[in-house]
Design a binder for these strands. Structure first.
Lengths: 238, 238
DNA sequence: TCAAAAGTGTTAGGCATACACCCATGT
DNA sequence: ACATGGGTGTATGCCTAACACTTTTGA
């Protein structure tokens, strides 16, 4: 059986003259947000085989005719499927092999990215080829064996990577608004880690590494003592 | 223009019915070894365009008809090109985009792995489609702007990852023989890091984490006090 | 007796935790 | 007054670097 594809095909023109088929390449996105006091991951219910009806990481096919880079592809897919920007992208891993998606292709390659969404943009519209989108508690999802493919393990890995960033005070700025109080910042870190942080040492570490700077004159008022407002100093990329 | 490929092609059969070409997918390997007192990386002089004559990481095309996984593909390529096993594989990053290899393909994807070779297997035979193989000091290579593609940056990343493992005493067992003295182990770590380590604290850290165990009765003799011989305890994977 | 490497103990400092305490505001 | 969260200081412990010291062999 022979199929025809256009000239953009990925046939390898090796010295031997043989042409090799290339893998079915997908990009998957583990989108995190904080809600209800804990880390949440965005899952999509699959609309088609394989694993139709199961929850999975949202993702899509890499389009070499559209995407200028892997990251650009991830952004395109997020727009199509989730209708949102996905800031703070970070590549986690590439996994591939036969039998990962046997009904569609003999050899499936997935490159997995992580993204962080601020608490503002939690309302997402299910887009192309997605039946339903929902936030799931991240820890639960990582341990859920009923997820499609190997996505549970991928989520666990994404959680680890994100928590490691928080522990190193490489702050996941995606979770943060432009400015914030130190109390808000600490709460965000605690919810990400899923454990308590000591206030005093947290602030000392922030100060030592010059991670945040006060916005002079700006204070947050409420039912208690006003708090100094801060913003991130070294502007993180993305 | 139309090309024909066989049925193993990677054409996506999406719901829309459109078929998408898949990227030209390569696997690159940063093989490290210790020689002449420092970390060395194995480079291959490219035999063909693009960048013919330039030094580059050895690599090859992913063959979905042959490779059961990305790692298996890396092992196959190492056999073909380098004629050796590559233990202690670790995936570093995937990079992709148009213009990475413009003469061969409109869109090139590379998945980069790191491998560690013991001091025993430094003699390698240049294999298929490789003009010449040579060890280069890793730090120099990482800074060398004359390397093909973006391989200098990839090497820098591989060095960082390997040094981080040594700092965490997640020992790069590929560099080690079956058994060794603590002095030999320390020298290996120092050469990998490119800096001195304090003997006393190094040994205490090893002891606290129960990383090595003595081979009772076995001693290394020489022109000085005999040394206890050790081996790794928790057998590392790969 | 000396060189060289093995192996051990002691001290000091950096950094994080735990916890106590004061401060400023709205109710 | 007091509850609430902001903000700061101190004591303690863990880990590591630095360095001094002893031990054991071959030459």
């Amino acid at each position: 059986m022979q199929l025809t594809v256009n000239a953009m095909s990925t046939v390898s023109t090796s010295k031997t003259g043989r042409r090799h088929p290339m893998p079915f390449t997908r990009l998957e996105i583990a989108v995190f947000a904080l809600a209800e006091g804990q880390l949440q991951v965005l899952l999509a219910r699959r609309a088609e085989a394989p694993d139709a009806g199961k929850w999975a990481l949202p993702g899509g096919v890499l389009r070499i005719d559209l995407d200028e880079s892997l990251e650009a592809g991830v952004r395109r897919i997020a727009h199509e499927r989730l209708g949102t920007e996905v800031p703070y992208l970070r590549q986690l891993i590439a996994v591939g092999g036969p039998r990962r998606d046997p009904t569609r292709t003999p050899w499936a390659l997935s490159i997995v990215y992580r993204a962080l969404l601020g608490s503002g943009d939690l309302r997402l519209a299910a887009g192309k080829r997605v039946e339903e989108l929902a936030w799931h508690p991240a820890e639960t999802a990582a341990a859920d064996r009923s997820l499609a493919f190997d996505h549970g393990a991928l989520i666990a890995r994404a959680i680890d990577a994100t928590r490691a960033e928080v522990r190193d005070l490489d702050l996941p700025a995606g979770f943060l608004p432009e400015s914030f109080t130190l109390g808000e910042l600490q709460t965000m870190c605690e919810q990400t880690l899923g454990q308590h942080i000591d206030k005093s040492s947290f602030r000392r570490r922030l100060a030592d590494r010059e991670i945040v700077e006060p916005v002079v004159g700006e204070m947050r008022t409420g039912a208690n003592r006003p708090a100094q407002i801060y913003r991130l100093r070294r502007s993180a990329p993305n």
